[in-house]
Design a protein around this nucleic acid. Structure first.
Lengths: 347, 347
DNA sequence: TTTAGCACTCATCTCGATAGAGTGCTAATA
DNA sequence: TATTAGCACTCTATCGAGATGAGTGCTAAA
């Protein structure tokens, strides 16, 4: 972006002042306010001139003629990329996050739920955590447990310790002993592959060598094929603290509120959004006004990834109004993601 | 209640008319409306007299002097108990419910989720489904699956086909073969007991015969004790369609809306409410104004139980504004509960 | 017992006036 | 040349007065 060269230090100061005040109040901010609270050594008139420039650059705009200025999405983007300095997360917050993890057991589901809870609590906004994609996890072991004559519980255990289970229907009764044999065979022959590869392998084997198979193999493979059908596609997501958002005056309007909640109810959109974040490490910021989820205007997503041994497992983040305190939320998301990764590493 | 004797047929007619119109519109209903739309053979003045009587009996009240009448909680109760005639659920609805179950597999979690979905969809309100209490389920089999050196997945399988699993942490590494032995031993010796009894038994055995135990038994019992600690207390509940309620004008006020959502977020209250319903079969109706969950005024709960072989497994219901169409919702809840029970029976 | 008529109450809607916040422009100033 | 003071202007939000209308209770007549 060229913009850096164009804006002088005063322009930056004013833009920052407008944004900071707007974050605090949510109201358009006028020249008087800026001159009084942020840049006391010049008069409102001077500020006005600067503001007029910023408006021309499409960094600020006015809702109506006699209102103050509000940042545009370009304004937000510029602020985030070129003005905002990110401090370390406050020690108090760091310790609260650590504490949140201490009590809970190291099961993935519980861990991620704890994450979303602490994120939404500290950010006072909605937290989202994307669970590791099943299809990408590395297969370690499979276990079949007979429930009754036509139901078998299938458990996948991943290298990373992630456990996922599904109930599978079968037509023919199979004893637990036999199931154990299947488990052992499959676990050994498929170890180390990703679930996606596992699925491919199974399909291939079934096609090609159909005749050669003994009964045991055929059964085992059929069973795990069924299990994979059930569980592989769905990406899971945990969302918490939506109601935090209702405290923001921008959603005070009932219509807005309904839209907002409807968006959260339809999780696929948010999943798609977070999916993008999965492609690279580090903190991503997506402004609602810029892209994707425009149904709910003036929402933004701050997200990062958590990983284990260099492999990205999933993503986590905070969704809130575009006017949120980035200087607090960015370190929060960043720190949480890193801590969570570390916990996985330690296992 | 004495009330039946006191009210004449015209009183009943008027009360019913007021309630029906109020259900439709949500606005206080005046004498003119009743005379025009429901009881056309008398004049508004007559209706007014009757209404005045009903107001004296505390069955109706006026929000303010020049508004129409609105039913009181006593009025609702009287209407539900003594006036309302419950028809069979419309054939169309019955078929839609049946269809909703057809596709899905017969796993309990999925089944109950499908239930809440179809309930909230047809009622256009919030649906709640209380999952069977773990402590009351009859133990059938236990299975341990080694995840890694300090995690074991424990799976309880109940007589009813309900499957529940938890991750348990252990200090000492145990091989899968050994775990299988434990599973077999415990499954055989504890079969047929309720989980609560299982827990008691385990505690007792550990206390009394500590010295006699061989290593295998001790381990097994320790493990299942740990598993029971994790999973036994939490009662699970599925709530769906809260946002349906936001369409009702009574919650158009932002304050009300927040309260409503906060109530749903804190699930324990709703669990306690449904717990009551578990004590006896059949449809229960709890008016918010009468009791318990007064935080959100003018909400009501219509619930029933689902069971298998005479044992009540759990409860399901619909939460909506008190002003809801009971003549539709009651058969809906009733039918769904019976159908769900039947599905469990068939297994 | 029912009804018509009437006076009365009260919430809600409309409309205009007013206040206030904020701007842009111009001319004066450093 | 950059800054500032002053001023006219625009637009929104708010408040109160008055009109509207729905609904009632009461009284007297049918």
């Amino acid at each position: 972006m060229m913009m850096q060269e164009i804006l002088g230090p005063r322009d930056k100061q004013v833009l920052e002042a407008v944004i900071i005040d707007y974050i605090r109040t949510g109201d358009p901010v006028g020249s008087r306010t800026v001159a009084k609270k942020y840049i006391t050594d010049v008069s409102p008139a001077t500020i006005r001139n600067v503001m007029a420039d910023l408006e021309e650059l499409n960094l600020l705009y006015r809702p109506h003629a006699s209102a103050g200025r509000v940042p545009t999405s370009l304004g937000w983007r510029y602020y985030i990329d070129s003005i905002l300095t990110i401090n370390q997360l406050a020690k108090r917050d760091r310790e609260r996050i650590k504490k949140a993890y201490e009590g809970s057991p190291k099961e993935i589901q519980t861990l991620l739920r704890a994450t979303s809870r602490i994120l939404s609590e500290l950010s006072k906004q909605a937290a989202v955590v994307l669970l590791p994609k099943l299809s990408q996890t590395i297969f370690k072991r499979i276990q079949f447990v007979r429930v009754n004559q036509n139901q078998v519980l299938t458990i996948f255990i991943a290298e990373s310790g992630i456990v996922q289970s599904f109930l599978v229907h079968i037509d023919e009764d199979i004893s637990q002993d036999e199931l154990n044999k299947y488990s052992r065979y499959l676990s050994e022959s498929l170890k180390g592959l990703s679930l996606l590869e596992v699925k491919k392998r199974i399909l291939k084997e079934m096609e090609e060598e159909r005749i050669l198979f003994d009964r045991l193999l055929r059964k085992a493979i059929e069973l795990s094929k069924k299990a994979l059908q059930v569980g592989l596609d769905e990406t899971d997501i945990v969302i918490e603290g939506q109601t935090n958002l209702l405290n923001y005056p921008e959603f005070a309007d009932v219509q807005q509120m309904k839209k907002l909640l409807a968006t959260f109810e339809e999780k696929t959109k948010i999943i798609r959004l977070l999916d993008k974040c999965l492609s690279s490490e580090g903190v991503h910021i997506i402004l609602g006004s810029e892209a994707e989820f425009q149904d709910v205007q003036d929402m933004s997503l701050i997200s990062s990834t958590y990983s284990r041994g260099g492999d990205i497992l999933g993503a986590l983040g905070v969704i809130g109004p575009t006017r949120m305190d980035y200087s607090r939320i960015i370190p929060l998301v960043d720190y949480t993601a890193k801590l969570l990764s570390q916990i996985f590493e330690d296992e």
